[in-house]
Design a protein around this nucleic acid. Structure first.
Lengths: 210, 210
DNA sequence: GTCGAAGTTGAGGAGCCCCTCAGGTTTGAC
DNA sequence: GTCAAACCTGAGGGGCTCCTCAACTTCGAC
């Protein structure tokens, strides 16, 4: 967003947009690890241009999924506006998972970073929204009290892998998995946990290491 | 096990053993996707010999992890011998996860196939043991009644990914994740599930597609 | 100790993907 | 219309891993 660099020439901007659009498609279909000349080919642009515009794969990924940060924020706001705090929490989680299930690239992304973590800047805001969702559900006595924001990573990783595995064979199976997970997060289900939560900087380090 | 092929010459058998031992180490350290000449090098054997003995990577993987089938069976038997059915169930799951956490290769394997599925022959036996563990826990009213053997795949996939992500930073974090999952599997935690269980042949197909 | 079968070796061809850069093209300010 | 800066192009070098195969070595039955 805060590019700061020189404004692009008209043709360059057009190519950039084509590349992002092509990458969006290709990532969604085949995941984040596709060969980049596939993206260039589909954009009708040379591979050199792609590297010109996006020196690293991460730059392209970031451009493709930049809008998701906002989407997640909108989902979070809506979750917070729901009457029932537990419904808000589950709605939030379910919508995120639905996005992952609909886009193999986004699912790949979530497998490494958790959804909010695309650009480090907006990350704080996403984290804060998530904290509010959890807090509210905990204050309502619906979400187990020992659940932390860091534990959300578990939920994401779990569903991520299930979506990957079941996508071809039973594309809605993740809903069952998620329901089983959520049943373990309700306050009355809580039994003492054998292990302290991950530390915020541990989660951060995991994100950083891709 | 039931090779049926001609008996190996003494030097060939020795090389085979060295290869399996080397692969065991390398897989455990670096996962199932390492370059195979790393394995050959560590075994002190040429890459040609490796391919001679194990035409495909899957052959080598199978040889390395063949004994795990038996190990899983032993854990299952022990689980069934425990007084409390729920303890038996959790003990089983936890021991499997412990094995995954201790061996990156085995964790990779579990991410695709569920643990019992190494050779298709013994698979049936593992499945049967698992069914008995679940049945017993359900009959005792401890495990939720709507949980099926196929749902075990969810548990495996979930933990698999968490182990992968946290191994470097917090190698015991998976225990917390597992505890959260298990709390969702207790009978009193059960809420209606939004999606039917996966069909046995769906799970089978997922395994087959690696 | 002979000798044929079994086994081993490792250089190298093939496939894949990454990324660069010298040369050609387009843009837009003047 | 001119021209310098910005941009595009795609062939090709580099790195990695896979896997083969013709020449060589070892085993073990006799």
């Amino acid at each position: 967003m805060a590019t700061g660099s020189a404004p692009l020439r008209k043709d360059a901007r057009r190519n950039r947009e084509r590349l992002v659009a092509a990458a969006r498609e290709v990532f969604a279909e085949r995941g984040l690890d596709v060969a980049l000349d596939e993206v260039a080919r589909r954009a009708g642009v040379s591979i050199g241009t792609l590297y010109n515009r996006f020196p690293t794969r991460a730059d392209l990924v970031e451009a493709v999924f930049a809008d998701r940060v906002e989407a997640v924020a909108r989902i979070a706001e809506h979750a917070l506006s729901m009457d029932d705090a537990w419904d808000g929490f589950t709605h939030f989680v379910e919508q995120i998972c639905r996005m992952q299930a609909a886009d193999r690239g986004y699912n790949d992304l979530a497998a490494r970073r958790i959804p909010q973590a695309v650009p480090t800047a907006a990350q704080a805001h996403g984290y804060q929204l998530m904290t509010r969702i959890l807090d509210r559900a905990q204050r309502a006595g619906a979400l187990r009290a020992d659940f932390t924001v860091e534990d959300m990573a578990f939920v994401t990783w779990a569903i991520t892998r299930t979506i990957e595995a079941t996508a071809e064979v039973n594309p809605t199976a993740w809903r069952r998995h998620l329901a089983l997970i959520l049943d373990g997060l309700r306050a009355p289900a809580a039994h003492p946990l054998p292990e302290p939560p991950m530390l915020p900087d541990q989660v951060a380090r995991i994100m950083r290491d891709c």
